[in-house]
């Protein structure tokens, strides 16, 4: 198992480097010239050839004339910077946000905690709902409840999440007036204790979490259901029943453990889509999260910020896939033995 995890870790590092190189080259496609930008205010006070000299000097200082791969390695922190230090992504320097006039690290702190909070919340909620629901539907296949669930889940994965968000907003915020339409905190609120702050935050993110959960119900429930039906039609289930094993044991011990394998695979795809989905949800509900920040950064061409967030998404997806791999290894002994 340890060897297996180590192997996966190595693989993930390689993939991370490839993805970050890809992103960095993409970022370099944008026509921009930081040296000229920096010199622009002083341009009037300089003679043309003086300006040209200063410009060339600055270009060299900033290392703009170095080959792409060197600049990439410098950015990621594997190559000595111009001041002779390693100062890149891996050392914790994520760059400088032009939009917020702050270091990216400081900009993304609060949104990151919000996003992770929301996503973990809705992950727990939707796994907690979909797995029992899928198992129940598989066991009671063809019954009325199953058919109704099929219809609802079909709606859930056919309708884009922002439309679901609009409908839920209409119902919960306008017709019933239970939740606020947008934001992460009550405007102008001052909290007497951190508990109040937490409660207020919880109140504001309840609806987004509900929407995200609803949106991811469809696909997962169907997946669990079909995996479970496959498992229940196996011979060992019939054997177990013939032996007189209790139905509960048959379902949860014999069938479910085998159905778990395909379900875990699908959780990876779903885990990624939930972060994609949070871009939409955060924009729709104006939540101060990574997705909203990403959207703002892209709209304002603040590419250092965007690049940092993109790296965050990549890391999330890689860590997600690592977790899936490990749990796969835990569940399926064959994986451990083979690799």
């Amino acid at each position: 198992m340890g060897k297996y995890i180590l192997k996966r870790l190595g693989y993930i590092v390689v993939v991370f480097l490839i993805v970050s190189l890809l992103m960095y080259s993409l970022y370099n496609l944008i026509p921009s010239d930081p040296a000229r930008q920096e010199l622009e205010p002083q341009r009037r006070n300089m003679k043309p050839d003086e300006y040209e000299q200063a410009y060339q000097r600055l270009r060299q200082q900033l290392g703009l004339d170095d080959p792409l791969i060197v600049r990439y390695l410098r950015w990621i922190g594997l190559w000595k910077g111009l001041d002779g230090r390693f100062d890149g992504l891996l050392e914790g320097n994520f760059g400088y946000s032009n939009l917020y006039k702050q270091n990216v690290v400081d900009v993304i702190k609060a949104p990151m905690s919000n996003t992770i909070f929301i996503n973990i919340f809705s992950t727990i909620l939707s796994l907690g709902i979909t797995i029992p629901l899928g198992i129940y539907c598989a066991v009671h296949k063809g019954k009325r409840f199953d058919q109704a669930t099929q219809v609802v889940t079909m709606l859930g994965y056919s309708i884009p999440i922002y439309i679901i968000a609009l409908v839920f907003m209409f119902l919960f915020c306008i017709v019933w007036r239970i939740f606020p339409v947008m934001g992460t905190k009550t405007a102008g609120a001052t909290y007497t204790s951190s508990w109040d702050e937490f409660v207020d935050k919880l109140y504001h993110i309840t609806l987004p979490v509900i929407v995200m959960t609803f949106g991811s119900l469809g696909g997962m429930t169907r997946y669990v259901r079909s995996a479970m039906i496959d498992a229940l039609s196996m011979d060992y289930v019939r054997t177990a029943r013939a032996k007189g094993v209790k139905e509960k044991v048959v379902i949860y011990s014999h069938a479910w453990r085998n159905a778990l394998l395909p379900v875990i695979t699908s959780i990876l795809g779903w885990f990624l889509s939930i972060f994609s989905g949070s871009v939409i949800i955060e924009n729709t509900f104006s939540l101060n999260g990574m997705g909203k920040l990403y959207w703002q950064g892209l709209n304002n061409l603040d590419f250092e910020l965007v690049l940092a967030i993109q790296m965050f998404y990549s890391v999330v997806s890689l860590v997600g896939s690592l977790l899936i791999d490990i749990s796969y290894g835990l569940v399926d002994p064959r994986v451990r033995v083979d690799k």
């Binding site: 972060f275 892209l298 990549s314 890689l318």
Partner: peptide, 18 residues
């Protein structure tokens, strides 16, 4: 695996924007 592992919407957004 790499392409499938990229978060879809953010990646499409950055491609479209750049």
């Amino acid at each position: 695996e790499i392409v499938g592992g990229l978060p879809f919407i953010p990646f499409a957004m950055i491609l479209s924007a750049v």
